[in-house]
Design a protein around this nucleic acid. Structure first.
Length: 512
RNA sequence: GCGCCGUUAGCUCAAUUGGCAGAGCAGGACACUCUUAAUGUCAAGGUUGAAGGUUCAAUUCCUUCACGGCGCACCA
């Protein structure tokens, strides 16, 4: 804390001391309340004229507004359920306690006991017969009717954003409901929730750059997981048949309105199913969740109407390229595809291979044009090293993605369970890695051994939960659906301290 | 990583061509016993994101940096 406090902060600290001097505990341990703001609204909403509640109520909340009138004053308390007005009068509280009441600041948390009545202006109000300070606030709240607007501050100080911008809370309530809706859906179909390691020895399960960390006692580098996929499949080998994991994954990549370095992914695996089964389940799950959490299939997202009523469109990738990009890759050789890529303005990845080029063409010409929920089906084998070959075309794999509003929401395939084929795919990935592809999968011998014991045929699915929440809450950025989106630290002091810490762990690493 | 835009009081925003940095809310003092954006009066509050430069003079023009927003690139 800096030496020089602004006047506003000083005043609040002085008030804190004054409350103490008057024998009040500014940070007590507990408060028994018998109602919330909304319970009182509901229970006594019928009061009219000079009616009063037969009994006193006791509730607590943060002071959000204050209106003083000399020997009587109004304030509004906010708790999780909502807001309720209170009315304090000197002749009820006595001179001393009323004067202390006037000293309260917006942001202070108090408990109140009193009878409920309706004011002349018609507002349901609790008359303060007794009040207790529950927490002295030392920092002023933002302006009362514009709230907190500055996006940077809203993300950095989300606790303030949540207090003064009620819509923000709704987004996160909905996020929570989506998570329970997913669990309900899957558990209702016999799936079991499992947890697998976040710290991985090898990079695998997706094409992405991992975060690296270090285990001091074991003297070894570790990766924060980019996907739980390979561990979940080991569990399918181990005999579980219907499992899912709902958890955080980490990707060391750029940030954007749809990317945060850590995000929440759902992965689902079902033994004896293929990607056709998974597609049907995905369609049911996504439409059910949207219906359950928004009340309808038709939602508004960034000004466009998106219809989640099943069935969703299904388009093979090759068809989609033809339709949206006027690109025909069927039966083309790698060189021909490379030429198409060049003609269509694909910059990077031209050397790496046909699959990657097709991927780029798809990202550029198809994905942004898919607004309504659409399954893109059957992908090139090179970019899907964990998926089974399509049964009638070995250049493709049985894989689909679900695209909504130009965003990839889900990704699924018939899981590759042939250990010999998987070994070949890993080898190809190793070649890519050697050629400089930082996202290529690592050769995972333990995973191969698991497959050698035998994994039943299985379908697997990954769903980007944050993006789903964006759609359900009409949030334009992933940062709006994360309580604390990743932000660079502001203070230079903090930065240099962090550098020191990094330096220390760096030198520790070297000495071990 | 690149491009564009932004950063002024605790919060929300002004400031003409480069000419004394202003208001509302919050906070302070006073008045006021049914207000709800309470009201009225008075006083206070600023290293204009940071560092340089140009100029008699910079919130304003130039350079660099920091942070953020949006777009692009990369990815899910």
């Amino acid at each position: 804390m800096s030496e020089e406090l602004s006047d506003l902060l000083k005043v609040r600290r002085e008030k804190l001391l004054e409350f103490k001097a008057q024998g009040m505990e500014p940070f007590p341990y507990k408060f028994e309340r018998d109602s919330t703001a909304s319970q009182i609204q509901e229970k006594y909403g019928h009061l009219q004229g000079h009616d009063e509640s037969p009994k006193e109520v006791t509730f607590a909340g943060r002071i959000m507004t204050k209106r003083g009138h000399g020997k009587a004053s109004f304030a509004t308390l906010q708790d999780e359920s909502g807001r309720l007005q209170i009315y304090a009068k000197e002749d009820v509280l006595g001179k001393d306690k009323y004067e202390l009441f006037l000293k309260l600041d917006m942001g202070d948390i108090i408990g109140v006991t009193g009878v409920v009545f309706r004011t002349k202006m018609g507002e349901l109000t609790v008359r303060v017969d007794k009040w207790t300070l529950l927490c002295k606030s030392l920092h002023p709240l933002p302006e009362k009717w514009h709230g907190l607007q500055d996006k940077e501050l809203r993300y950095r100080e989300r606790y303030v954003d949540l207090l003064v911008n009620p819509d923000v809370k709704d987004v996160f309530v909905k996020r929570s409901r989506i998570l329970s809706s997913i669990r309900k859906f899957l558990e209702g179909r016999g799936f079991m929730e499992v947890e697998t390691p976040l710290l991985h020895v090898l990079q695998g399960g997706a094409a992405a750059t991992p975060f690296e960390t270090y285990h001091d006692a074991l003297s070894m580098p570790l990766f924060l997981r980019i996907a739980p996929e390979l561990y979940l499949k080991r569990l399918i080998v181990g005999g579980f048949e219907k499992i899912f994991e709902l958890g955080r994954v980490f990707r060391n990549e750029g940030m954007s309105f749809k990317h945060n370095p850590e995000y929440t992914m759902l992965e689902v695996y079902e033994a004896y199913a293929d990607y056709h089964d998974v597609l049907k389940m995905t369609e049911e799950m996504i439409s059910t969740i949207i219906k359950e959490t928004t009340g309808k299939f038709n939602i508004e997202y960034k000004g466009e109407t998106i219809n989640f009523e099943p069935p969703f469109k299904r388009i093979p990738l090759i068809e989609a390229l033809k339709h949206f990009g006027n690109i025909d890759i069927s039966g083309k050789t790698e060189d021909q595809i490379r030429k198409i890529g060049k003609d269509k303005g694909i910059e990077g990845a031209l050397e790496i291979g046909a699959g990657k080029i097709i991927n780029e063409l798809y990202d550029k010409f198809v994905e942004p044009n898919l607004r309504q929920p659409t399954f893109i089906v059957d992908y090139p084998i090179e970019t899907s090293p964990l998926a089974k070959k399509k049964r009638d075309n070995p250049k493709l794999v049985e894989r689909f993605e679900l695209i909504v509003a130009g965003m990839e929401i889900a990704n699924a395939f018939s899981e590759l369970n042939d250990p010999l084929d998987q070994r070949e795919r890993f080898k190809k990935q190793a070649e890519l890695k050697a050629a400089g592809d930082v996202e290529a999968e690592s050769m995972d011998e333990d995973f191969l051994r698991a497959l050698e014991y035998g994994m039943p045929p299985a379908g697997g699915l990954g769903v980007g939960i944050d993006r789903l929440v964006m759609l359900a809450t009409d949030s334009p950025s992933i940062r709006d659906v994360l309580f604390f989106p990743h932000m660079k630290p502001i203070s230079k002091v903090v930065e240099s301290e962090e550098m020191e810490i990094l330096d220390q762990s760096e030198s520790k690493r070297k000495t071990k």
